[in-house]
Amino acid sequence: MAADSQLITKQPHKPKLAVWKFASCDGCQLSLLDCEDELLLLAQEVEIAYFMEASSAVVEGPYDISLVEGSITTPADLLRIQEVRRQSNFLVCIGACATAGGIQALRNFADVSEFTSVVYAQPAYIDTLKESTPISTHVSVDFELQGCPINKLQLLEVISAFLNRRAPQVPPHSVCIECKLKNNVCVWVAHGTPCMGPVTHAGCGALCPSYNRGCYACYGPKENPNSDSLCHWWEQKLGANKSTVIENLRNFNALAPHFKEVSEHRERGDKA
């Protein structure tokens, strides 16, 4: 952990918070502005020192806590993330782009020069890396908050934990546990709906099953998932075809180590 435990108690000023954007949709940093009831309170506890989407005032680093949204996709951003790390005591990745490359990491499974020519008439103007990678590929990170998008209450919990120098309470169990806690009827068992819940990290509050929909794993893998087994059940018992199985492992968290591995097994047709 890069956090300097001396920092919070000894420094006379409010902790400085910075929000950084890399390749992303802005939705995770927006979660901070969506804290309508807490935003002004938060601003009393921390100095919002760098947050380009919300403020044109920039306070020089270093920063006590940095929230990093987005994945690394350009040569310039490869350098910028190093500088962000140098300027940050405690670096928190927020969202699937920062923790697992995001939806734009689908390029990693394809030919990016062909992608550029599909979108742009003159691809020569476009400067991009072959792969979209999570922040942790490039620098050490102090905490990763999963989700596409993140849960704003979990974000407040992470900031609050940092301010109070304790570990964030972000349970790593599955969406299934959240369904049980909500007394949801299981969409898989009761309706035969393919659901990624058993392997997906909690945090959304089991939203999709609460709306009669199978989970599509936007929070990425839970701790120790067995996705190969899940895929087997999807195919054998629920009649899901191979492309559906791969699409559900390979969407917003396609590079999460476990999902990537299993989607590649499945693509090659390996046995679990």
């Binding site: 390749a23 996709t73 350009t74 939806i103 734009q104 550029t116 599909v118 979108v119 991009t128 699409e247």
Partner: peptide, 18 residues
Amino acid sequence: FEPPRFFEAFLRGRDFSE
């Protein structure tokens, strides 16, 4: 200078429902 994300390209081959 927002980085390119190539949605139109990687949508190809995905299911219409997605």
